[in-house]
Design a protein around this nucleic acid. Structure first.
Lengths: 135, 135
DNA sequence: CGATAATTGCGAATTGTTCGCATTTCCGAT
DNA sequence: ATCGGAAATGCGAACAATTCGCAATTATCG
């Protein structure tokens, strides 16, 4: 993976390595703050703004993606496109299968010419534990 | 509409009246900043923080809703639940039919027990003019 | 190694939103 | 009509998340 970046002619720096390793090691859905906290456990010198910039670069290179979750800050993970659902009550993020939005995407494209980016936002609602409550 | 609020025992104030009138008069998708600018044309004394609080109240009472749009600030409109799509390139917001997400909602509920709030976030992607470009 | 362009650390600036609090306003009871 | 008290407002300060400018550092190439 680092090799892939090197092949692209990008530099391998401490923060890039640290963030890629962190995201590779977990399936969690991490906010920038989460990432900073964990990266800084081993590399306290890595500044928050560097994390923002690193994530931005990694995203540009297709290594990382982020997902918007309404009121909550976005989450980041290795590029591995699948849609997400977020419970508006407890904040839990769950993955849903790749393809779950295909039918919708097709319909939007045919009827409105709109090309859905199904992984760049979360579907919001209530998980089974909180269904029925309001936000 | 104002009568409906009065019936609920809520007070009718200048900012509440102004915001309801503004939102009733347009189909646009307005950010808080848009709302402030327009309301303040006729009521310059209405403070931005009042607009936030008024929108919060109106939302609590089911008169107004807001929709999240990823990077862009949320938009507000009279409660009139239907889903939205947002072009990530030009920012344009379009309404899509009530029910366009029903099938998806049903499937999420059956398979994951997840109750979709189909109008509390926008579907992101590219409109017909910008399809193919990246964010 | 040494040059050089990319990247970082850092703090300050921005943006969007919330809060505390003194003052004002709404509205039901007088 | 007007009074009293709760509710809402205006205001500025506080906050949170993110971006920026810039000097110092560092990864890579020759």
């Amino acid at each position: 993976m680092l090799a892939r970046l090197r092949a692209k002619g990008e530099r391998i720096t401490t923060s890039r390595r640290a963030i890629i390793e962190l995201l590779s090691a977990t399936d969690d859905h991490l906010t920038v703050e989460d990432i900073a906290a964990r990266v800084q456990m081993t590399h306290p010198e890595i500044h928050l703004s560097t994390i923002y910039r690193t994530l931005e670069s990694l995203e540009l290179w297709g290594v990382v993606e982020h997902v918007h979750r309404g009121h909550a800050p976005p989450i980041h993970h290795l590029a591995n496109a699948h849609p997400h659902v977020v419970c508006e009550t407890c904040g839990r993020v769950s993955d849903i299968p790749i393809g779950a939005l295909d039918e919708l995407a097709l319909r939007l494209r045919e009827q409105f010419g709109f090309v859905l980016h199904a992984t760049h936002f979360a579907l919001m609602g209530e998980c089974e534990l909180h269904a029925g409550q309001e936000e």
